[in-house]
Computed example of a mutant assay.
Amino acid sequence: MFQRSAPIVAALLFLSAGMSGCSEEKSSAQAAPPPPPQVTVAKPTSKVVTDYDEYVGRFVALDFVEVRARVSGYLDKIHFTDGQMVKAGDPLFTIDRRPFQAALDQSQAAIAQSQANVAFAQADLQRGQSLVTGTTITQQTLDQRLQAKRVAEANLTASEAATRQAALDLEFTELTAPVAGRIGDRRVSVGNLVTGGTTGNTTLLATIVSVDPIRFEFTMDEASYLRYLNAASVKRADSIDRGLSLNAQLKLIDEKDFVHQGHIDFVDNAIDPSSGTIRGRAVFKNADGRLTTGMFGRIRIAAQEPAVALLVPDEAIGTEQVRKFVYTINSDNVVMPKYVTLGPVVDGLRVITKGLVADDTIIVNGLMRVRPGAKVTPQLATADASKSKDQTVRTN
Rank of each mutant, 00 (worst) to 15 (best):
349 L>F: 13
349 L>W: 08
349 L>Y: 10
349 L>K: 13
349 L>D: 15
350 R>P: 11
350 R>H: 15
350 R>G: 14
351 V>I: 15
351 V>M: 09
352 I>F: 13
352 I>Q: 09
353 T>C: 03
353 T>V: 12
354 K>Q: 12
355 G>T: 02
356 L>P: 03
357 V>A: 09
357 V>G: 10
357 V>N: 14
357 V>L: 06
358 A>L: 06
358 A>Y: 02
358 A>T: 04
358 A>I: 03
358 A>W: 02
358 A>D: 06
360 D>P: 13
360 D>Q: 06
360 D>Y: 00
361 T>A: 02
361 T>V: 13
361 T>R: 09
363 I>T: 12
363 I>P: 15
363 I>G: 12
364 V>I: 12
364 V>M: 03
365 N>F: 00
366 G>Y: 11
366 G>L: 09
366 G>E: 02
367 L>D: 13
367 L>T: 08
367 L>S: 13
368 M>W: 00
368 M>Q: 14
368 M>N: 12
369 R>N: 13
369 R>M: 08
369 R>I: 08
370 V>I: 01
370 V>C: 00
370 V>R: 09
371 R>H: 06
371 R>I: 10
371 R>Y: 10
372 P>F: 00
372 P>I: 06
373 G>W: 01
374 A>F: 02
374 A>G: 12
374 A>Q: 13
375 K>F: 00
375 K>Q: 14
375 K>C: 05
375 K>R: 10
377 T>M: 11
377 T>A: 10
377 T>D: 12
378 P>K: 10
378 P>G: 00
378 P>M: 00
378 P>N: 05
378 P>T: 05
379 Q>I: 09
379 Q>W: 00
379 Q>T: 14
379 Q>K: 10
380 L>A: 08
381 A>P: 01
382 T>V: 07
382 T>P: 06
382 T>L: 06
382 T>Q: 03
383 A>M: 04
383 A>K: 05
383 A>S: 09
383 A>E: 01
384 D>C: 13
